[in-house]
Amino acid sequence: MSTPDDPTDDEVVQTAAEAAEDVVFSRFSRSDVEDFDVTVSFEDGVLEVDVYINASGGTADPDRVADDAALAARAAVDDLLE
């Protein structure tokens, strides 16, 4: 049951998206990233996060960074909901 202090679904989605983006751009410079997409949904208490990165430069593995970004998004939402 939600209370007035609970974050809105939009706040949850925004928090997750910002955390994922922060991870992506902490590992890649903006000029190295050709395309990226963060898709977040939060419905009925279920968080879905999908991160796609197409990066041509840098030394980081885009798939690993995408996984780390999704984990960071989930962790940020956990912190928000505590």
Results as ranks from 00 to 15, higher is better:
V38F: 03
T3M: 12
L71M: 13
F28N: 12
A66P: 01
V49W: 01
A66K: 00
P62F: 11
V33N: 02
V13K: 12
V24M: 08
S56Q: 11
V65E: 02
V46A: 13
A60T: 12
E48Q: 08
F36L: 11
M1C: 05
V77I: 11
D78E: 15
D9V: 10
A16D: 05
D50V: 04
D37S: 10
D44H: 09
F28S: 13
V51S: 04
A17V: 13
V49I: 07
E82C: 04
L71A: 15
S2Y: 03
G45W: 04
D68W: 07
A60Q: 08
G58Y: 03
V51R: 00
P4Y: 09
P62H: 11
A76C: 12
R64L: 15
E34P: 06
E21A: 02
D37I: 08
L47K: 07
E11Y: 08
V49P: 02
E21Y: 04
V23A: 01
E43A: 13
D37W: 05
I53V: 15
D9N: 04
L80H: 00
V38Q: 02
A70I: 06
V65P: 00
A19V: 11
V38A: 03
E21M: 02
V23S: 00
V33E: 02
E34W: 08
D44N: 10
D37K: 08
T59P: 03
A76N: 05
